[in-house]
Structure formats: structure tokens, C-alpha cells
Simulated scan of single mutants.
Amino acid sequence: MDSQDPEAWRYALAYAMKIGGSAATPVQNYILLTHTKQQLKSTSLSDHVGAAASKNLLANKTVSLSDGGQLRHETLQTLRLTGRGAVIIAYFAEDKLLETVDGLDAVVGVVAVPDIKSQADKWIARWNPVVHGELQPKTPAPLIDDTVIVNALTSLSGSINLSHAVMNPRDKEYADETLRILRAKGHKLEPDHIKSWAIRNKWKPGAADELARLATRIRDMKSKPSLRSFHNPDGKYERWSE
């Protein structure tokens, strides 16, 4: 369902409450997330939510839900760095909004309602969520088919601090070396897939984006990079290939 469907809000709220009710500790905190406050005033979402509820949400008040939980409205500017204990309904969702949600800590669940359906495709591939009206695959498709690249990224993830929103210079050096070895050994780097893999594997979205930009630059080099300045690149590659 996309945001223009008049049933989208009703289903989104129902899914959110189902997630909240299934949690080990019943959820009390629900967040409606949009890009701006204006989207709750000037779009059909206001009509779908209801005049009284929209008025309260715009006034930064909570709205009581039938399961006893409380719904509040947040935007990209007001959303805090944690969604601890919350179920988030990401409305008009696209890459930027969903990556912001992916960077939050201890979120109980996420319901994404894209502005148009295709805008959530990367997020769907990343997380294999339940998609309304579709059968869910039993096993999510791998984001990266090349096991050597997966092993290399797994090794990299264990060598850097994943709690940082961006990579520090030393971590960026490790990432650069890893990607250059892979490129020199003939592996195809797909930046979008590498970014999604990193986010799925607990990288912060900002750091994952930096990794993808490094991958783009190294992928687009006219010739294979030299490995002469790296310590034991062949040994590292052999370990990734095991």
C-alpha cells in the first residue's frame, strides 16, 4: 500500500498495534514519523488520521489508542536518537526517512508506508519485512551473493567501532584497504548492496553510507588498485576465501 490509499493509515495502525501487542512487554509508545509537520496538515493523512487526532498530534499531544498505548507525532527534525521501546509508523517513507529509522536504538518494530510503493524497495530488500498483500519468503534473499565479499565485510565489521555514526580515520583506512583488495582480486563491488548489508549488520546508516561511497570510488577506478602498501593482502584474501 502507498500513502495515497485511503485504507493505508488504518492498516498501518493495525499492524503497529499488532507488533506492539506481540512484544515481550506490551508497547505503550507509538510514533507517527513524517518528514515535516506540514505533511500532517496539508495531505490526505490528516483526513485519514481524523481531525481531532491530527489537531492533538500537531499540538505535540499524544493520542490514546485502543490497546492502551499512546501515539505521538515526530518529524526528522524532532525525532530523538532513540526509539527505545517504540513502534514507529514511518509515513511517506523513502530512503532518507527509513535510514533514519534504521539508525535508532532498540526500536520494537517499524511499519513503513511509502509515498509510492517503489520508494521502499531498498528497505524491503534489506529487512525482508511483511509486505501487505504479499506472501513473505521463508528465507530472505542474500543482499550480497559473493561469499568472499561477505567474509571480508564481516571481518571489517569486527575490526571497527560500529557504534559511531561515521567512520573515524582509522576505520576508514581499514575499509579502504578491504575494498581495494577485493577490487584488485576481481570482485564486483555493488555499493547499494554493500550499504544495505552494513546497515543490516549493525552499522549506523551514516557509516554505511561512507562505506558505500568508498566502494563507488574504488569500483570506478580505471585500473585495479595497487596492494603494495598494504600488509599481507594475499593472506587476508585467503582468509576471506576459506
Rank of each mutant, 00 (worst) to 15 (best):
L32Q: 06
G85C: 08
T62E: 15
K138P: 01
I31T: 11
L227G: 09
I149V: 13
S159C: 05
H48W: 14
N161E: 10
G235P: 07
L97S: 09
A51L: 11
K202C: 05
E99N: 14
P137N: 02
T178S: 12
Q39V: 02
H48I: 02
G21V: 04
R200H: 09
I89F: 10
G186L: 09
G50Y: 05
H193Y: 09
V130E: 14
G133N: 11
V87G: 10
K185R: 15
K188S: 12
P140R: 10
L227P: 11
D115E: 12
D2Y: 01
E7F: 10
K55A: 14
A52V: 14
I116P: 00
E173G: 10
E7K: 15
N151A: 15
E99T: 05
E74L: 00
Y237F: 15
V49N: 08
G235A: 13
E173N: 10
K185T: 04
Y237G: 02
L227S: 06
L57T: 12
D5C: 05
D115G: 09
N161W: 01
S3W: 00
I124H: 01
G133K: 08
Q28L: 08
L182P: 09
A212H: 05
E173T: 15
G235F: 00
S3R: 03
P137D: 05
D102M: 07
S118A: 15
D220Q: 07
R10S: 14
E177G: 05
T43N: 05
S155Q: 08
